[in-house]
Simulated assay, not measured.
Amino acid sequence: MINFEFYNPARIIFGKDTESQAGKQISKFGKRVLLHYGGGSVKANGVYDKVVKSLKEEGLFFVELSGVVPNPRLSLVREGIELCKKNNLDFVLAVGGGSVIDSAKAIAAGVRYSGDVWELYMDNSKLAGLTEALPVGVVLTIPAAGSESSTASVITNEEGWLKRAINTEVVIPKFAVLNPESSYTLPAYQTACGASDIFAHLMERYFTQEPNVDFTDRLIEANMRTILNNAPLALKNPNDYNVRAEIMWAGAVAHNNLLNTGRIGDWGSHDIEHEISGAYDIAHGAGLSIVFPAWMKYVYKQNVDKFIQFAMRVFNVDFSFDDKEKIVFEMIERLEAWYVRMGLPIRLSDVNIGSERIREMADKCMVGRTHVGNFQKLKADDIYEIYKLAL
């Protein structure tokens, strides 16, 4: 176990009807708010009306910026930055899922950054000069990205369709309202993609080369099993509060950095997937369900015992230890079967993507980087082979 610091100041406000507390929480940090959201879903499910009511009750001034799409766009981020500066806004409230939250974080960072915000995403060393951002709050409607209490933000630049991330404590939300009821109306595919994203965050942390991390291994395994068990139930009974609550809380804990402690995660699969969703604009969770099995097939020999542990503890594979590869590939089959049960793709061909651009995506993945991943440090040729395994 390596040395670590753990810090997460995000206040979690969890439960029924908690949207009504948004205005009160914001008033602790600011008075002039950018209300940031996506399309019509937050209005259709009533969350928008509850949030606006809470803002008015606190006497807060607010300006709205809607239009966030999956794989949130840099152009809208720049629009939000200008709105904040023009209206002297001092708080950004994200109402929605991970894309809205990531966009809000980028706006909050961009307002305080002296250069163009995209510089931070292309060159993470510049984050050292970002000492503050506008405070951000969240009303979560889609459990998936875990961005509601994380250091991360991922944005797509339409010029070149590069998808890149930042990680910095200054964009950790000040609070996050989590009402499982707000996820009742999610389409089944969006629920499935969200579960895939949560599970991927757990696997990225789990597959480490750092020894003696049994405590966090077991925390991650418990979270994984929670998602494996509850996500299919959410598809069968969308209005089951208890099921939705398990998923929503598991998603937040999966990505608030608690499960990073003492270990170095991988994150190669996320970088590899970002090129797929950046080029083809597919759902991030769907891209992850395609990439992860292929990544596993390519890297498992780097530490086969970690994969054996994962197979036994998470997927209950109980085969003879004499054939380790059989255990690993049985686990991969069970993971793929879970994805399929959830209605998710497990091959590029499942989403009508062929081999035409996989070399291009592998090369683009390396732009601004020396490698991706930590379990095995991957270069462009390695990424190309993983894409081939995903066909």
Rank of each mutant, 00 (worst) to 15 (best):
D49C: 13
D350W: 03
I172L: 02
G194K: 07
I12L: 12
I346R: 07
Y384I: 08
N3V: 15
P173F: 01
L93V: 05
F329L: 09
D266N: 13
Y300M: 08
V170F: 07
K306D: 02
Y121H: 01
D217Y: 00
N3H: 05
L34M: 12
A128S: 10
A250K: 08
D217G: 10
E275N: 14
F375L: 04
A362Q: 11
D266Q: 06
D350T: 15
W118V: 00
E275C: 13
D197C: 01
G15P: 07
A252G: 05
L83T: 03
E204Q: 07
R225H: 07
M1C: 03
W295H: 04
R263D: 10
G343Q: 04
K24V: 15
N256W: 11
H270M: 13
A380F: 09
D281F: 13
E132G: 12
W161C: 11
A286C: 13
E360M: 15
R218D: 07
W161E: 13
E132Y: 03
L186N: 10
V69Q: 08
E159Q: 03
Q376M: 15
D305R: 11
F91M: 03
P72C: 07
N71Q: 07
E119N: 11
L89I: 10
V33T: 12
G137L: 06
A245R: 13
D116I: 00
S150D: 01
R112D: 03
P135A: 04
D240M: 04
G40V: 02
R78A: 11
G285T: 12
V51L: 07
Y300L: 04
L127Q: 13
K86S: 02
V213Y: 00
H371K: 09
D214C: 00
G268F: 15
G40K: 15
G67P: 14
V63A: 14
K297Y: 05
Y113S: 01
A200F: 08
G115F: 00
G80M: 04
S150A: 00
V68H: 02
G262S: 14
Y280V: 12
S41Y: 09
E158H: 08
I107Q: 01
L228W: 00
F375A: 01
K50H: 14
V68P: 03
Y37G: 15
E275H: 14
F4C: 03
L83Q: 06
N212F: 11
E330H: 12
